[in-house]
Amino acid sequence: MKKHFKAITLPIISVIICLTSCKAQKAQTPKIIADGAELTLVADDYEFTEGPAVDSNGDVYFTDQPNDRILKWTAADNSVADYMKPAGRSNGLYFDQEGNLLSAADEKNQLWRIDSGKNVTVLIDDFKGKKLNGPNDLWVDGKGGIYFTDPYYQRSWWTHNEPPQDARRVYYLASGSDTPQIVADDNFDQPNGIIGSPDSKTLYVSDNGTKKTYVYSVEENGSLSNKKLFADMGSDGMTLDNLGNVYLTGDGVTVFDKNGKKIQHIPVPEKWTANITFAGPEQKTLFITAMDSVYTLEMAVHGVR
């Protein structure tokens, strides 16, 4: 009886221990997707969607770069309409504190500011007398400065077939300046997705070519320091939520906590997921651009700026 008792109780104890630790582990990972939420297709009549940027109303502007247009998704009625065409082959977008739409316009490798009347100001036309490689994605800090990535993806509308710059970098354009400064020149293969923390003290940059994402400390003058590997995964675009989780794209959406631990994967039924942002009046709708489509998913967390 004694041996029989041990034989049946040891596995039970192990199961109890396992269940306890599993519950504890689950409790440590906050829920990020709203109960019962399902990925919802908004529209799928584009060629390649990119660059979602949310305005102060929670509406999203995104690009269909091959068709040279910016579109607007209105949160109130879930509708999409053309906003601007042509649009300088805009790729990544972001709103500044004054409500201007900033664009990585790589038809002529420029950085644009588009005001509410759709008037365009070219913020950057070159760097040290040469065109940029092709600004891709951007983020605005608390001072109004702009960080942007400058990889090199050959475009069919360019007449050149070599990168104008001798490196693929991350730049920073301070508020009021017309000259960007190099803040990361780390032998990037293809620097791409970029996002910063609400306090402007941390910056995440993806090298999509080497499939790595790095995290930097941001200094008072806008320079970057203390580079660390954040995730063994690249990203075309990225965003943050109020818990500090980082959302990376590619094969659907993969979510990492602030320490770089993977906590969630959100499948998207497309070959490539390009970019994401939080949308809606409370920024609790995840807006996803993927191939020829855009999707939404209701969240238990919300976006931050």
Rank of each mutant, 00 (worst) to 15 (best):
V294A: 05
A105H: 01
D106Q: 08
V80T: 13
T49F: 07
L102T: 07
R155Q: 15
V60N: 04
N275V: 01
K128G: 01
A75N: 12
A75Q: 05
A76W: 05
G193C: 10
T74Q: 15
S217M: 10
S103T: 13
A231R: 07
Y83P: 12
K130V: 08
D236E: 14
G99S: 09
K261I: 05
G303H: 08
K284V: 04
E282I: 05
V170C: 14
I70Y: 00
P281Q: 11
R305I: 12
A7G: 03
A105D: 06
S225C: 13
M84N: 06
D64E: 13
A37W: 05
L132G: 00
E107C: 05
L203A: 09
Q283R: 15
L243P: 04
L243Y: 03
P135E: 03
N78V: 10
D68V: 02
V246I: 15
G88S: 12
K212S: 13
V255G: 03
E282F: 02
R305Y: 15
A184Q: 08
G36M: 05
S103R: 05
G234C: 12
T159W: 01
D141M: 03
P164H: 09
T249V: 12
S197T: 13
Y295N: 07
E98C: 03
A7D: 07
S14Y: 01
K130R: 11
A24C: 01
E162Y: 11
K131Y: 07
L297M: 05
S293F: 03
I146R: 04
L102D: 10
V218D: 01
H302T: 12
T296Q: 08
P52E: 10
A27S: 12
D292W: 00
Y214W: 11
Q28V: 02
D185V: 08
D96A: 02
K26D: 03
S21N: 02
N242M: 04
T239Y: 06
V60A: 11
